[in-house]
Lab assay of single mutants.
Amino acid sequence: GAPPLPPYSAGGREVTMKKGDILTLLNSTNKDWWKVEVNDRQGFVPAAYVKKLDSGTGKELVLALYDYQEK
């Protein structure tokens, strides 16, 4: 199953993602919540729920390892 959710501390809205989604990583300075862009929406997802990909394009991409439903 998915890892436990860290307390929400990102101070911005969250976004929903599905397992297998490829998201653009915008900011990973917060260790628990990373800012991503998905379907032209920006928001935060739990860092433990995604994995960085080596895209080779200069853009940082992450793979959704679990479904996440915004609150």
Score class of each variant (00 low, 15 high):
1 G>S: 12
1 G>T: 14
3 P>A: 05
3 P>I: 06
3 P>N: 05
3 P>V: 06
4 P>S: 09
4 P>M: 08
6 P>I: 02
6 P>F: 02
7 P>A: 10
7 P>S: 11
8 Y>R: 10
10 A>D: 05
11 G>N: 13
13 R>W: 08
13 R>E: 13
13 R>C: 13
14 E>G: 13
14 E>W: 07
14 E>P: 15
14 E>R: 14
14 E>C: 11
15 V>D: 01
16 T>F: 10
16 T>A: 11
17 M>P: 00
17 M>E: 00
17 M>R: 00
18 K>S: 08
18 K>N: 07
20 G>Q: 02
21 D>V: 04
21 D>K: 03
22 I>Y: 05
22 I>N: 02
22 I>S: 02
22 I>H: 04
25 L>C: 05
25 L>T: 01
26 L>I: 14
27 N>F: 06
27 N>E: 14
27 N>P: 02
29 T>D: 15
29 T>G: 09
30 N>H: 09
30 N>T: 04
31 K>V: 13
31 K>H: 12
31 K>P: 14
32 D>P: 01
32 D>T: 06
33 W>F: 03
34 W>V: 04
34 W>M: 03
34 W>C: 02
35 K>Q: 11
35 K>L: 15
36 V>D: 00
36 V>S: 00
36 V>N: 00
36 V>E: 01
37 E>K: 09
37 E>W: 07
38 V>D: 09
38 V>F: 14
38 V>I: 15
39 N>F: 09
40 D>T: 10
40 D>A: 08
40 D>P: 03
40 D>M: 11
40 D>C: 12
41 R>E: 13
42 Q>D: 09
43 G>H: 04
43 G>T: 04
43 G>V: 06
43 G>N: 02
44 F>R: 02
45 V>S: 00
45 V>Y: 00
45 V>I: 09
46 P>M: 02
46 P>F: 03
46 P>L: 03
47 A>F: 02
47 A>S: 14
47 A>Y: 02
48 A>E: 09
48 A>W: 05
49 Y>Q: 02
49 Y>L: 05
49 Y>G: 01
50 V>A: 03
50 V>I: 06
51 K>T: 12
52 K>Q: 09
52 K>Y: 09
53 L>K: 03
53 L>T: 05
53 L>A: 03
53 L>Y: 09
54 D>N: 12
54 D>E: 14
55 S>V: 13
56 G>R: 08
56 G>P: 15
57 T>Q: 14
58 G>T: 13
60 E>Q: 15
60 E>M: 12
60 E>V: 15
60 E>K: 10
60 E>T: 14
63 L>W: 05
63 L>Q: 10
64 A>F: 01
64 A>Y: 01
65 L>F: 03
65 L>G: 01
66 Y>E: 04
67 D>P: 05
68 Y>D: 00
68 Y>S: 02
68 Y>T: 02
68 Y>Q: 01
68 Y>I: 03
68 Y>E: 00
69 Q>T: 15
69 Q>G: 14
69 Q>K: 13
70 E>F: 10
